[in-house]
């Protein structure tokens, strides 16, 4: 029997995509569905989560995260607080750094572009675990950073053991509050079982080292994206603005930056999406310590499942994280549509 050319192409098409469909279906889609079920149960890791003996608890695992007072909610909210500060500082800093480096590297007067581009990009391609080991050494209490600080007469902290919040330190340093004896109206209450005082801690000193590491490793990738966009800006446009007598700052402000807007946008959203997922560095460097100040939702969901065998809570946390990230993705898509229209 001979098939028509159209039918043959149909079959060929499906055969070509079949392996990828099977892999992504079995290991991306199916797992998500299974996890949705597990997040509604109290499964403890023994046997199959689909057996009849597994207790169904409805949305209990989710309400434990948001409405029920207890250790689970406190840990979860602490991890959310930590990650909010983490995103809020890492994303702007790495974006500005990447943009700045791209502008300098792209400058026509300077030579050695290739070398500097490679130097800034190299940390991004190396193993996050290996880099974490290096930073553990560099930020050790008698390590390279504290040696450098000592050279300037500053005594560096015990980076990884220091749970003090940066914001607390700043407020205390300015004399706004007494850190050892914080005002009662801040400590007496606050949303989601965490006091206002705790919400306002800022990232801890230990968390700052992880933030520095991540800024250091990811700026290079984003710099490359800015560089690619800068090279797409027509030279004639810059020349025209120069003839019009625009100085360097004016040119940057009114010609270059507007042209970079789509890339800037992309870098910001990619940054937000990836910073909500910080895991490897926490796993290697701090395991959530000191004082739970480096706990993140991704790491918490992992430990809930694999250390405490609370698979229901763990999967519930990962779906909340999923929702947070999807929300940011949707906002990005929506804003991009506005821009394209």
């Amino acid at each position: 029997m001979r098939l028509s050319a159209k039918a043959r192409e149909n079959i060929a098409g499906w055969l070509f995509v079949a392996p990828v469909i099977v892999i992504l279906g079995l290991f991306m889609l199916l797992p998500i569905l299974m996890a949705m079920w597990v997040s509604l149960t109290d499964w403890n890791g023994q046997g199959s989560p689909f057996k009849s003996g597994v207790p169904f608890v409805g949305f209990d695992n989710y309400s434990k995260l948001f409405t029920e007072d207890g250790l689970t909610r406190q840990d979860f909210m602490t991890s959310v607080r930590n990650n909010i500060y983490y995103v809020g500082i890492v994303v702007p800093v790495q974006t500005v750094l990447a943009l700045g480096l791209a502008l300098v590297v792209n400058s026509r007067m300077l030579k050695g572009k290739g070398f500097f581009r490679a130097a800034f990009f190299f940390p991004s391609v190396t193993s996050s675990v290996a880099i974490s080991v290096v930073f553990l050494f560099i930020f050790a209490s008698s390590g390279a950073v504290n040696n450098l600080l000592a050279f300037f007469g500053v005594q560096g902290p015990q980076w990884f053991a220091d749970a003090r919040g940066i914001l607390h330190l700043v407020l205390g340093g300015l004399g706004v509050v007494d850190v050892d004896n914080p005002p009662a109206f801040l400590t007496s209450g606050g949303p989601f079982g965490l006091s206002w005082w705790d919400w306002l801690a800022g990232p801890s000193v230990a968390m700052s080292t992880i933030m520095l590491l991540v800024i250091w490793t990811t700026s290079g990738t984003f710099m490359l994206m800015f560089l690619a966009a800068l090279q797409d800006i027509p030279v004639t446009l810059e020349e025209a603005s120069m003839l019009d007598g625009a100085g360097r700052w004016k040119r940057l402000r009114f010609v270059t930056l507007p042209m970079l807007k789509p890339t800037l946008f992309l870098v910001l959203t990619m940054g937000i999406i990836s910073t909500w997922q910080v895991f490897d560095q926490v796993y290697v460097m701090s395991q959530g310590a000191p004082g739970k100040t480096t706990l993140t939702p991704a790491y918490l969901s992992y430990t809930q499942a694999f250390d405490s065998f609370e698979y229901g809570t763990g999967t519930a946390i990962s779906f909340v994280l999923f929702a947070i990230i999807v929300l940011f993705t949707i906002v990005q898509r929506w804003l991009l549509r506005e821009r394209n229209a």
Binding site: I32, V38, Q277, F279, S301, Y302, G314, S318, L321
Partner: peptide, 12 residues
């Protein structure tokens, strides 16, 4: 996002 799949992948 990859981190969301940790536990789900283990289950499968």
């Amino acid at each position: 996002p990859g981190v969301v799949l940790f536990i789900p992948k283990f289950l499968v």
